[in-house]
Simulated assay, not measured.
Amino acid sequence: MVKSITGIVVKLAIVTVIALAINYALYIFTPLQGIETAFTYSLWVLYAFFFFFSVGILATLLVVSQKNITQTGYLFLFLTVLKMAASYVLARPILAKTVDVKAEKLNFFFIFLLFLAIEAYYTARLLNKKQ
């Protein structure tokens, strides 16, 4: 089980680094150059937050799926709601800004969706695994 958790963490880390590099490149080589300096949270802080949250969710799901596969889907839903609540608390300063921060809001939303898609993919793989 430790080997499979390590494999998931390594794959998630690789995807995170690639996505972070693409995101930085977006703000360096496009007309949006320098806009990320005005963000409430730097890109690496957002990616680190979602990375560690996703590692926790995936490790928990893997442990629970080994013991009781029938509860894995419910746990995924509960942990996703918990992640959404934590993300909302993190995003409140961004949402409260009165100046136009459309790029920052979209950036936060797409990072959230990226990690949600990764978690959903691994959860589907766990649930479809033959017992």
Rank of each mutant, 00 (worst) to 15 (best):
Y27T: 02
S65Q: 14
A117C: 04
K102Q: 13
Y88F: 09
K97R: 15
F108P: 06
A96M: 09
K11E: 08
I8L: 09
A21W: 05
V89C: 07
V81L: 12
V2L: 10
K129A: 14
Y47R: 00
Y47M: 00
V2G: 05
I57E: 14
A124R: 15
L127D: 08
V10G: 13
V81D: 05
L82E: 05
A103F: 15
A124F: 15
I18S: 02
M84V: 10
Q71A: 15
W44M: 13
N23I: 13
V9S: 10
N23M: 10
L20R: 02
F53W: 12
T60M: 05
Y122L: 08
F50L: 01
T98Q: 11
F52K: 10
L12I: 06
S87V: 01
A48W: 05
T72D: 05
S42R: 14
I69W: 15
L43I: 10
L61S: 00
N23A: 12
T80G: 14
L75Q: 04
R125S: 06
L90C: 01
V10P: 06
L127T: 00
T37L: 08
N68D: 10
L12V: 14
I18K: 03
T80Q: 13
S54M: 02
A91W: 13
T72H: 02
A19K: 03
Y122D: 08
Y41V: 05
G34L: 06
Q66M: 07
E104K: 02
K130P: 06
N107Y: 06
T40G: 12
A21S: 09
K102Y: 09
K3N: 12
K11R: 07
R92F: 06
L95S: 04
K130N: 07
E119T: 00
A13N: 02
Y27H: 05
T16V: 00
A96Q: 08
A120Y: 02
A85M: 10
Y47K: 01
K83G: 11
V2W: 06
Y27I: 04
I69M: 11
L75C: 11
E104A: 03
K11V: 12
V2I: 08
F110P: 01
Q33R: 10
Y122E: 11
K129D: 03
I22A: 03
A25F: 11
V89D: 15
S42K: 10
Q71G: 11
G73M: 08
Y121Q: 12
K11H: 06
L58N: 03
F109D: 11
R92W: 05
V99M: 14
F78H: 14
Y27Q: 08
L46N: 06
D100P: 13
F51C: 03
R125K: 09
Y41L: 02
V10K: 03
R125F: 13
E119Q: 00
G73C: 04
I69H: 14
L114F: 00
T30A: 05
N23H: 13
S4G: 10
V15T: 05
T123N: 07
F109E: 11
I8G: 08
F110H: 07
F53T: 15
L106D: 09
L126S: 02
V17E: 11
I111A: 06
A25V: 10
S65T: 13
V64L: 11
N107K: 09
V101Y: 15
